[in-house]
Design a protein around this nucleic acid. Structure first.
Lengths: 340, 340
DNA sequence: CTGTTAGCGCTTTCAG
DNA sequence: CTGAAAGCGCTAACAG
């Protein structure tokens, strides 16, 4: 390896006949350094392509200018939106981002959080896995004095700022839209009961039915485990073959809705005429399928930006932050699948 | 901030009445340290939750155990697959990953590469932006003695290992499949002429036509600029409204194919009966739309894994690597849109 | 097998 | 305004 040794402050000092500390101060434009020296040093550094050794700086300052970002699965459109927003914002403030994923497994989340801690990120952005209840691994990070901001899939047991979307309201509005369109027998393919987001979405669904005094057949609610397209297909089949089939299906996420649409098409149901479909998350594909899928928009990019801004502010003010919550409003993107 | 001071080696040494170096060696299980001491130190460390200060270690060893990964857009399914594969592999070898994106802009790529360099990644994985021709910013990294591995969108001017997919063959096979299905008038929505991947895909298309002695109407080839769904829609319209409409359309990427399908559906063309459609990349959505989209699979996840393995091997052997190329075979996923 | 010593590159007192 | 010196936490000669 050719390994040209990088220029150090010492080199600059020697060449310029000044002390290392003066060189350092000049480069960082400290108050109380003559403009002359500053110019001298900076010009020299510029000319010789001086790049400070970040490792040394980090070590010395006990900071890394790095944020950790842990999400369940980067592959999912919502999370890659969050990642994009976070990276963009971090960069703007001079921070780098470590991204990691848990594949929705608690064990991976624990390992990854420890890795983040040991690799000394200054702070952490995290969206919890479905399996996560106990949050000791995150508490450990807080105990070290490092701020954490939770995103979307959060735990109330953790005293950290949170950026979430109003799942309840988003869900309520979505179902209200279905009702406004004239659908009367609305089913719901829900997520894990234990996961707050799923719970809130289901609550929104139930409330909307209640408020509109609509029938709720308990057999209309299924709980997904994998939250996959396959489950959407399967549950749609069960729903439609039941003795009391619904006339609309509200799905915990767009991927599930895709399975539902696939089943309905395979059986030649007319969407939205015979049956309406509504998804959640507004994945890229929602606008591309036929019929296009109506969906509740979670604004992942915005969430990534907001959470990162909060984290960086905590870092700047050197505090851990309370458990204040920023709740973004959802959007409702009405497309063909629910437009009667 | 509560900021509990972390336990250091010095603390351990003091508590155990041994020297710092012994403690260090014991923790790292150096040869020539009594099992007794090793156990003593490790137990103590374990009990008191000793976490080595990675910054100090990195600084001392002049390594960061961090890989940089630069891609055009994380949001795109192919790239998030690459990211997933890379992160998984890196983790397996004890490396972390900085992910960044360029939004296909050269200027961003330059900035991001410098950031990677200054934040001292040990090596870099990169997929070039569409705009990138001149690769000085990457040469700089090589000049510092840090290995670089290029992925998918590569430049031959850069003497680094590359992991690519055989775009030519993938394209050729895809078009051959269309021909085998009986399509005779095959159009191509290509990408930027200057980008190698696009060029190779187009070459595969042209060769397949030639080899099968099929007509090639120059008006059947369009070059996309944004490589967007909208362009797919627009160009499909132009193709179908022309005096010599094709009976199949091969698209540079699935997103473009989505636009094509959308147009065809809007005009009630029967796919695949009247017109076949083939995409490239095999995005997640390809299997979810109706009709489902046939597509050439690029195995992004595998590419991420392979490239990361190569980079880590270079790091281990402390070399920059030559410009050897690993060319993965594409797959062909035949779905409804091309199955007569 | 273990201790002593030096030093990575930088920032930051403390003096002058 | 600048210099000298200390030290962040760890590893790696070098001695014993």
């Amino acid at each position: 390896m050719s390994e040209k040794r990088r220029l150090t402050l010492k080199d600059i000092a020697r060449e310029l006949g000044i002390s290392v500390s003066t060189a350092s101060r000049a480069l960082n434009s400290y108050p109380g350094i003559s403009d002359e020296t500053i110019k001298l040093v900076k010009d020299f550094a510029e000319k010789h392509n001086y790049v400070p050794n970040t490792m040394a700086v980090n070590f010395r300052k006990n900071k890394t200018m790095t944020l950790g970002l842990v999400v369940p699965e980067i592959i999912h459109y919502f999370f890659s939106s969050v990642v994009s927003g976070a990276i963009q914002t971090a960069k703007k403030h001079g921070y780098n981002v470590f991204v990691s994923q848990t594949d929705e497994l608690l064990q991976n989340e624990i390992i990854t959080c420890r890795a983040m801690l040991s690799s000394s990120v200054d702070g952490l952005l995290i969206s919890l896995s479905n399996e996560t209840n106990d949050c000791e691994h995150i508490q450990e990070i807080l105990d070290e004095g490092k701020p954490v901001v939770q995103i979307d899939k959060v735990s109330d047991n953790l005293p950290t700022p949170k950026v979430i979307v109003d799942d309840y309201q988003g869900s309520f509005n979505g179902v209200q839209h279905l009702i406004d369109q004239g659908y009367k027998k609305i089913a719901h393919l829900a997520g894990w009961k234990e996961v707050k987001n799923s719970f809130e979405r289901k609550r929104g669904y139930l409330e909307a039915l209640k408020k509109n005094k609509l029938e709720l057949d308990p057999s209309w609610v299924f709980h997904c485990k994998d939250i996959s397209e396959e489950e959407g297909f399967t549950f749609a089949q069960r729903l439609m073959e039941s003795s009391n089939p619904p006339d609309a299906i509200f799905c915990i996420t767009d991927l599930v809705a895709m399975g539902v649409l696939k089943y309905l098409k395979s059986k030649k149901y007319k969407v939205p005429d015979q049956i309406g479909v509504l998804g959640f998350s507004n994945w890229q594909m929602a606008g591309l399928v036929t019929p296009s899928l109506s969906s509740v928009d979670q604004h992942g990019f915005q969430m990534g930006i907001k959470a990162t801004e909060i984290l960086i502010n905590l870092l700047k003010s050197n505090t851990l932050g309370g458990d204040e919550t920023v709740e973004l409003k959802t959007g409702l993107v009405i497309r063909e699948s629910s437009m009667l």
